[in-house]
Design a protein around this nucleic acid. Structure first.
Lengths: 191, 191
DNA sequence: ACCCGCCCTAAGCGCTTGCTTAGCATGCAA
DNA sequence: TTGCATGCTAAGCAAGCGCTTAGGGCGGGT
């Protein structure tokens, strides 16, 4: 049996609130009441509103990086690997659209130090995709003129899901991930 | 000689502020001081902070719709037309990244009535892209399995630019628009 | 019975928020 | 000179903000 601590309840409340109203639009009183606590309880378990955001952002970045890293290691065959990377990255953004929205849209609300720390995760994600494309070109399977630009565009497909995706909508995360994976192959396959 | 009215100066100040700090993170005092006026001056020319956002959002949506509509009418040859549509739509988002950020990320901050009004522009943009793909399929030039999903993905490439694009960065808007146009053709061309 | 340590809250502090009110300066018509 | 509309500001109001302080309630060890 897993016990959810008060600290974790506050983090989950912050995820809901930040995703719904943005960091600046969320009050600490809102977070506390979503967690069923008084306003002061926030400060028993967390240093500040911004440190709550940082906690959510770091864990979100770490999780997304883990997903794409595992996908990159799943195969050395360029097409199958690319398909898995795009599929898993897009699916992650659909399955975690609230955390993803905070990761992407509240990045600027972090302090300079915290933003710099989180930026290392972002560079790793981009590099993982670039390396997969470059290796596919080296193997003679893919044809990619602009590797950094194409890598960024493939990631954009997944990232942009968090702008509008809602669970229970007309399209499932798996459908969208599958579409993105198909498009990714067409964008890069040597003909 | 064009004269910039006080009302327009406030709108330009609001664009800067909303793009930089978000709607909730912007104060009316900040808008006023960027326009070189006292806090009360905002309310001489505009009803409320939200009505300023609505003004910016409507004009931004209208402009983006105009760009993609003109591009759709520029040719009846599917490939050339698709290339122009994706190019112009992405270039608009690069050239207007601050307004674009407000259009995309502050959509939820509008009142229900204002959001509904702006939603009609969004549907028109999506429909314009879908119609262009469907016509290309009918003409036997394009091969698109999922027309709505692919249309959305093509628009996502442009929209996602506003998340990170800054004028004067390492890549110009034209370079990125050109990349997106190339990728769009590869995604949809019949082989 | 007693006390300690852990969680939590009631109350509130100093400040900022969106917006209003009352009034002043300027320019133009008569 | 007078009258008046226009375009702006100084001052401030009620409400809400992030965060702090002081202390209450309660379970477990002795």
């Amino acid at each position: 049996m897993t016990t959810i601590t008060a600290r974790e309840r506050l983090i989950n409340a912050a995820i809901e609130a930040f995703a719904e109203k943005g960091f600046a639009g969320t009050t600490t009183r809102d977070i506390a009441s979503r967690a069923g606590m008084s306003p002061a309880a926030v400060y028993v378990h967390h240093d500040s509103k911004e440190s709550l955001l940082f906690t959510v952002s770091v864990e979100g970045h770490r999780s997304a990086l883990e997903v794409i890293t595992n996908a990159a290691a799943s195969s050395s065959e360029p097409i199958e690997r690319l398909r898995t990377m795009v599929y898993d990255f897009s699916l992650w953004h659909a399955d975690n659209s609230r955390v993803g929205r905070i990761v992407q849209y509240e990045y600027h609300a972090l302090t300079d130090e915290h933003r710099a720390e989180v930026a290392t995760y972002r560079r790793s994600i981009e590099k993982t995709m670039q390396d997969a494309l470059a290796d596919g070109v080296d193997q003679g399977v893919l044809d990619v003129v602009d590797v950094p630009g194409t890598a960024f565009s493939l990631l954009s497909l997944g990232v942009d899901l968090v702008r509008w995706f809602e669970p229970g909508g007309s399209r499932s995360g798996h459908e969208l991930a599958s579409l993105h994976a198909d498009l990714a192959v067409r964008m890069t396959l040597r003909t």
